[in-house]
Design a protein around this nucleic acid. Structure first.
Lengths: 190, 190
DNA sequence: GTCTATAATTCGATAGAC
DNA sequence: GTCTATCGAATTATAGAC
């Protein structure tokens, strides 16, 4: 066995730690998540977490990396843009809410300024450009904030707060209910 | 001086503690807020907090009490309902974001299940009935969740995450931008 | 009512054996 | 690479003097 083989136990251990950390951060936020608990979830010793990630903050930083995987919205007709946006986020969250980096980020960003900064960067770097490809930079700049507020508000109410009136809806009903709202916001931008 | 006079130093101290606690909880959430910091803000000894409130959790419970002060929406024409709703929440938050129990509740509810429960109770007990007075119980039940998601999404993006595209808008622009979205959601309920 | 002192935990981080 | 042991710091909460 070579010393640096791909998929070595070290790399697997590191991935297992990161996976456990994402789940803990997503479920409890930064402060309540302890390195000890992450280590227990990953079935390793707490000192291993320190060895692989240095400290709790650096582990947090890696757990916050989010790729929204937005499609090319420039290829979507504007009439279908609202539904495409809402559906993308709903499907993304519906997949595995407990292990989604976006939910980690959302939950953490509310009480942690570092995570809030990452959230701002994520939207500035991924949502705003995707909207600009569909609407042009001027219109996108005017509506990106309010559209983000609506999409994040959905995630907040359905997956974090679990408001009954939102949880009780099917995924399709959520898409159907929120699409007209996003459409109205986009229409405002002329 | 009578033993139980109104506005005694005890009552004032208690109120000062609760005020300081709301600010700390609103700014930092439950976990990062320490009794020591609350006591320092209120210029009293940490043990006084324990004396008046028993423990940190009970202090938290009192800080979470929220009166949304919603007007009687039954008296508002349906055409003006969306703007009245959005404006009420914006003005409420714009007033003094650092000392608003609703922001305390929102920030805390994301990482604290007890606070999340209080948030669900607050919306079930105040927003849902107000909407029912305007739309009737059936329509209100269908849209209350999505309307709440939009209003909370605004508070989240503007006051907690501070997304640039939302922070840069004036209060009037926020009302103008979000009102059509709420209107579209209400229209869906037929 | 207010304060000092401290008990009892919990956690992040380090040192070092193997 | 993995583990044991422990340090040092911070916090909630209590006991009790004044």
């Amino acid at each position: 066995m070579a010393a640096h083989e791909v998929g070595s136990r070290g790399a697997q251990t590191r991935a297992a730690i990161l996976r456990a950390a994402r789940e803990r951060f997503a479920a409890q936020g930064y402060e309540r998540t302890t390195i000890r608990a992450v280590a227990a979830d990953a079935d390793i010793d707490p000192s291993m977490v320190m060895r692989y990630f240095g400290n709790k903050e650096k582990l947090f930083d890696e757990a916050l990396a989010v790729d929204l995987r937005l499609p090319d919205l420039g290829a979507v007709p504007e009439s279908e843009l609202p539904q495409a946006l809402v559906r993308h986020f709903v499907e993304r969250w519906e997949g595995d809410p407990s292990d989604d980096a976006l939910l980690v980020l959302l939950r953490s960003a509310v009480t942690n300024e570092r995570a809030a900064q990452r959230m701002r960067e994520t939207f500035a770097g991924q949502v705003a450009p995707a909207l600009a490809a569909a609407l042009g930079p001027e219109r996108a700049a005017r509506v990106a904030g309010l559209v983000a507020a609506q999409l994040l508000g959905l995630g907040l109410a359905r997956y974090l707060l679990r408001l009954p009136g939102v949880v009780s809806l099917s995924a399709d009903a959520v898409v159907a209910g929120l699409t007209p709202a996003v459409r109205a916001t986009l229409a405002e931008s002329g």
